[in-house]
Amino acid sequence: MRRLCTPAWIARHVLTVALVVAFLALGWWQTSRALSGNALSWAYAFEWPIFAGFVIFLWVREVRYTLRGGRPTHPEPAAQPARTATEGVRRPVRTARPRPAVEGPDDPALAEYNHYLAWLNANPGARPVDYPGPGRQ
């Protein structure tokens, strides 16, 4: 239990209590607003207590983790799995089929855009407004 009395853990305890109280108070506030006619507040009236429950869940999980001593620094090696009949068999690797090369673009707009990109690549300091257009170089 001394592990839960360090300054870091005391801050966690205080933060947990503060969050739970704040979330439950916000849930109560939303419930009072919902009862006075605000229909949207019904969703928040149920949401804030769920947040408080989540904070409690995280706090309990961290306390259990700390009391168990955390994860071992050197995990024990796992037992060797039993050998199967197909262990030494290599499976073929499937490679992608190469696509046939496209001879020429069918779309004139695509050809113009590719020309524009090639011009930008050839003229790195140029601005887009300096582009002369296709066939005007």
Rank of each mutant, 00 (worst) to 15 (best):
R2S: 13
R2W: 09
L4A: 09
P7F: 04
P7S: 02
A8Q: 13
A8K: 11
W9S: 03
W9M: 10
I10G: 01
A11H: 07
R12K: 10
V14H: 05
L15Y: 06
T16Y: 06
V17K: 07
V20H: 03
A22W: 11
F23H: 09
A25G: 14
L26P: 00
L26W: 10
G27Q: 01
W28E: 12
Q30M: 15
T31H: 13
T31Y: 11
A34G: 14
L35I: 10
L35T: 11
S36C: 02
N38A: 15
N38M: 12
S41W: 06
S41D: 15
A43H: 14
A43E: 05
A45G: 10
F46C: 15
E47Y: 15
E47L: 14
P49W: 11
I50C: 06
G53H: 06
L58S: 13
V60E: 09
R61K: 06
E62C: 02
V63D: 02
V63C: 12
R64E: 13
R64F: 10
Y65T: 03
Y65F: 12
L67W: 03
R68N: 13
G69W: 01
G69V: 05
G69I: 03
P72H: 11
A78W: 09
A78D: 11
A79H: 08
A79E: 14
P81C: 04
R83V: 06
T84Q: 14
G88Y: 15
V89P: 05
V89N: 12
R90W: 14
R90M: 13
R91H: 05
R94K: 13
T95M: 14
T95R: 15
A96H: 08
A96I: 09
P98H: 08
R99E: 14
E103N: 12
G104D: 10
P105V: 01
D106P: 03
D106L: 07
P108Y: 00
A109K: 00
A111M: 00
H115K: 00
Y116D: 01
Y116H: 02
L117H: 09
L117M: 13
A118Y: 02
L120T: 11
L120F: 09
N121M: 12
N121I: 08
N121H: 15
G125K: 08
G125H: 12
A126L: 04
R127D: 11
P132C: 05
P132M: 05
G135F: 00
G135C: 01
